[in-house]
Design a protein around this nucleic acid. Structure first.
Lengths: 217, 217
DNA sequence: GTCAATCATCTTGTATACAAGAAAGTTATT
DNA sequence: AATAACTTTCTTGTATACAAGATGATTGAC
């Protein structure tokens, strides 16, 4: 159950941060966390360093590590980059994708549709993930695929929330279909544009969501 | 002179790897390197972990860390991603750049031209770096800027080599000017295309270079 | 009473000691 | 002689001990 290796600690800490267990600017106390995970400071420090590099925390020498929850501006920036990266995937995939993969995407989309009809946001989320994973893969560029996964992973909690917005799931579905259509035609520019817009919309929706929460609170 | 902090060690090791001091698959011995840098294994291990995350070395649990020099395929993939990231910068910069920054780019280009005329590849390289740095900045997206810098840094040694190819510097210059022209017109699509091609060419040139070396050896 | 300086305490950073797993060498058996 | 099992040695991973810098408190001076 409680794996104690340095990399698993990093994963657990990352999950904690991503799910918002810490506020922005919170200092992560080495000894405290070491106790919590029942390890010494050595492996814990290694885990913290990992998080520092991936940008989830900031390491200030001789001061400690502090969680860095992205603010609205940085989030928009990250969504913008995600949009460009996925657009690149689409652009490349348009000329590289084969019929089997296209069929896979259609399948994923069909399952998305089922989820939409069942108003099952969790299910939709999972199938949506699958759709995007295929897109990354079909870029035919393993490095790009990895970069996409990295950022995708980081944006997970925020993407997830905007899905619950009224009418977002059907809209997202329609965008998916437009993407597949462009890929089928082998229209690289159109595929890139569709994907870019699809992801950018996620960022905007999330932004609206945050603004709404602020206004309500 | 010999700074001994963990992050500086990471930098020095990174430089060593990037400049090809180790062959692909070489194991990096902790105690050996610790002696070499005159530190204990603890800070050295932290440095190695950093390199592992940035992908320069692979860490296999209980086995050690091994340098991972990118092969031709991975290099092409990285250049392709670099091209897409920089194209994204250009696309965004086309609508966000201001006159001052445009002037800066023209300046950098002028200095590039001076270097070309002097056949000074090192000087050209530096001014070329500056040109691209401005482009990243003018995307108006700090996160994108950082991502670009990260990958740019990783590709440095390879980009540097292809510059010495016959006729490459004047060609690169011309591409720069086309980029600035597109940005001046505020033509996002054209700017993106020009930049994408400019960077993609670097990858291709490097590929040719490698193929040539292989044939010669 | 406030501000500054010194001192105590706490936290990070590094070294060393120890534990556990992997590789290699040796020996015994077939 | 070849192979398999065991043992030795080496390397990585973790814990603890120690050093050094940073923070905060207390005391003294103005």
């Amino acid at each position: 159950m409680n794996q104690k290796r340095a990399d698993t600690i990093a994963e657990q800490l990352e999950a904690l941060i991503l799910e918002g267990a810490f506020a922005d600017g919170d200092r992560l106390d080495e000894v405290q966390l070491a106790e919590r995970f029942d390890v010494s400071r050595t492996p814990l420090r290694e885990a913290l360093q990992r998080l520092a590099i991936s940008g989830l925390v900031e390491h200030i020498p001789r001061r400690g590590v502090f969680v860095r929850q992205p603010g609205p501006v940085e989030l928009m920036e990250m969504f913008e980059v995600m949009a460009e990266l996925e657009a690149a995937c689409a652009r490349l995939a348009a000329t590289r994708i084969n019929d089997d993969a296209l069929e896979e995407m259609r399948e994923a989309n069909a399952k998305c549709l089922t989820a939409v009809e069942a108003r099952d946001a969790d299910r939709y989320y999972i199938e949506n993930e699958r759709f995007h994973a295929i897109l990354y893969r079909q870029s035919g560029n393993g490095f790009l695929e990895e970069e996409c996964r990295r950022l995708h992973r980081r944006l997970t909690p925020f993407r997830r929330r905007q899905l619950h917005l009224r009418g977002r799931m059907p809209q997202s579905m329609a965008e998916h279909e437009a993407i597949v259509a462009a890929l089928e035609r082998g229209d690289a520019a159109a595929a890139a544009d569709e994907v870019r817009r699809h992801v950018a919309v996620q960022g905007e929706k999330f932004h609206h969501l945050m603004a709404g929460l602020k206004a309500a609170g």
